[in-house]
Design a protein around this nucleic acid. Structure first.
Lengths: 157, 157
DNA sequence: CTTGAATATTTCAAGCTTGAAATAAAAGCG
DNA sequence: CGCTTTTATTTCAAGCTTGAAATATTCAAG
């Protein structure tokens, strides 16, 4: 076998090992987040994600905007917004001029609840990545961004 | 506000941004894997994960070993092994001397199917992380490992 | 041996997730 | 205007996931 081919195969194995390590890292942190959200606030990560998206868009988001923003299916956000609405944390509003569409927003109480969640969330992430200093964070962010450049295809054409 | 506090807060925000980027990267790759597994092999990522664990342990794994290896709940692996068994890819064997326990194994067909899955899987990961060269892979793996050191607490005491 | 604690696994309800089908409304077009 | 196509959302079945409860078995004392 030629040297070039050997090199390519070893690189492929190294990428696989890196993938498994990245997956372990993010899955572990995500599991911590889920547990913390449940134990400290009796809520879930998907609910948090939807609330975070709505908090960033106080003018409201259409259901379809929400699903593409979070990269989950339409049917998925329907269910989560349903539950947030039942709990009084979100609401749906009609879109003037388009009776098919709805925008989802946080209620005032939803906003208050989210602010508390977000503060804890930042602290949990800070703890989870606490072993990394400023330079390491910058390096890892740069490499993750570079990896994305191929992964996404072309999100920002 | 003191300089030290400002620095800590900015570091915390940077960790949060890094977390969001890592999550986007791994979620994106995972979504690709799920789609590829479904379209090319009509299977799912959890089934693949269980098969991979069993493939690495030809002697078989107890249900509880499988669940701690994969870091998912006991009830979860019960269901997945049930489905793999229905499909003829895995089987359960009694453990001599302990009638509570069972070991799960791949069948011969399960092994064949897995070998094909694994080859494609490696190719998909190679493509997904293809933007990273050998040095970048090594750097990222090192940083992920360092981040883990805090995350895990003490897995290897 | 018998009783009670510990261990291995399954069952279960609830929620998340998806892709596909169903509904409903808007837009384009002849 | 009617008719088709596109767009926005919901509904649905199937599978994944969890934590807690239920079963079954082993182990440890007495």
């Amino acid at each position: 076998m030629g040297r070039a081919k050997e090199k390519a195969e070893s690189l492929s194995k190294d990428r696989l090992r890196l993938w498994l390590r990245l997956l372990k890292l993010t899955s572990g942190i995500e599991a911590d987040l889920r547990r913390n959200l449940r134990e400290a606030h009796d809520t879930t990560l998907p609910r948090f994600d939807v609330m975070a998206a709505l908090a960033r868009h106080p003018e409201g988001l259409r259901m379809s905007e929400l699903s593409s923003y979070l990269r989950v299916s339409n049917g998925n956000v329907t269910g989560i917004v349903d539950r947030l609405t039942e709990e009084g944390l979100a609401l749906r509003m009609a879109v003037p001029g388009d009776r098919r569409a709805q925008t989802a927003r946080l209620t005032a109480r939803g906003r208050e609840v989210f602010d508390r969640l977000a503060a804890d969330h930042e602290g949990w992430i800070d703890a989870a990545l606490g072993a990394l200093g400023a330079a390491e964070i910058a390096t890892m962010a740069r490499l993750a961004k570079r990896a994305q450049s191929r992964e996404d295809g072309n999100e920002h054409p």
